[in-house]
Amino acid sequence: MLFLSFFFVFFMLIAGSSSSTTHTASEEGENLPEAVLRWKDKVTKEATKNEIYEAVPYLLGIIMAESGGNSEKYPDIMQCSESQGKPPNSIKNPNESIEVGVKYFADMWKEHRDYDVLNIVQAYNFGGGFLSHSGKSYSLDNAIQFSKTQAGGKTVTYTNPIAISLGYDYRYAYGNMFYAQIVKQYITSTSNNNSQGNSTIVKAALKELDEGTHDGGTKYWQWYGFNGRVEWCAIFVSYNAEKAGVKMERFAYCPTGIENFKAKNQWLGKGSLPKSGNIIFFDWDGDSVSDHVGIVEKVENEVIFTIEGNSGDKIAKLNYEKNSPYIIGYGIP
């Protein structure tokens, strides 16, 4: 968002002091202090409600960059008052700040799903207008040029360690052209979260795959209570969720599963990156009605690996590109 000049000083102090220690990405988030991590549940709740669950690490990184999570000193911990057309720090409740900040981020994210997420992060600082100039791929040079143009070439001294490491001791006097880089240092890796077998439902499904079933899914539809064969992809998902102790309503009809997840704000829209153990829904014929479902095993390089029942009447491991036109979205049990 566009900062007023006196807020530039505040941001320099916050971003500068919070970056004075070298941080490395980790799977468990040790690079974020407890002052930020205490807001993780609230951020996750709001991100899920806004259908950007996978953005949680970036949102926590934004909190770190904006306020260090210090709501006692900076109640507007996401510094999002200006996104509502208000003066800086007008929001006096950290929970409200998260609600407003996450929605602001989500609106840009969902409108530009094919953009690099770092462009969305940078736009949180610059304002959404940046996305009209950034292109889909993030580039520090684009951020610098945008800031330079908006500032009319005016610069200010800036000694944040990230800027220094990039060869700068100044920035242009419009927003912070290093913002995405500053937030990026706090992003926790999701590689472990998406690795094989980290989810109990994935372990259960892999066990079923190893044992093999080639009898039309009899084991599963009989377990559900049917007396004769039915399409059993959703039943396979329900079976493994129950065997794994995952809290999820049973469903035998794919649209019912989607309704269940959406009703609980546990839905992740298409174009998003899911996590291991999420439930992936498909629409093969493009009529916006789901006709197949599976379990996300892992995600690697934006390729989604799945375990699916009733794929050719068997259990199969398959994979899809993140932006596959057949993917409707994901349930988050």
Rank of each mutant, 00 (worst) to 15 (best):
K262L: 12
I162R: 12
N198K: 05
L4M: 14
P94D: 01
Y320N: 07
D283L: 01
S290I: 02
E321F: 04
S71Y: 14
T24D: 09
P94V: 02
L4D: 15
D291G: 07
I91F: 00
Y53I: 06
V289R: 14
D313H: 14
G167N: 11
R113T: 14
I235Y: 07
F282I: 08
S324V: 04
T188D: 08
E297S: 13
S26F: 10
I91Q: 00
L273W: 07
Q122M: 09
G167E: 09
E242S: 14
T22I: 12
M248T: 12
W284I: 08
S20L: 15
V43K: 01
N95L: 07
S97K: 07
T22S: 05
K270S: 13
T44D: 14
R171Q: 13
E297H: 09
Y104T: 06
K86N: 06
S132M: 11
P33S: 01
A55E: 14
K264S: 08
A163W: 08
N160D: 13
K45F: 12
I327P: 02
G167A: 12
F261C: 11
Y158W: 09
K40C: 11
S97E: 05
S272F: 03
I258M: 12
R113V: 14
Q150P: 06
C254Q: 09
A180I: 13
E211V: 15
T306S: 13
G245I: 11
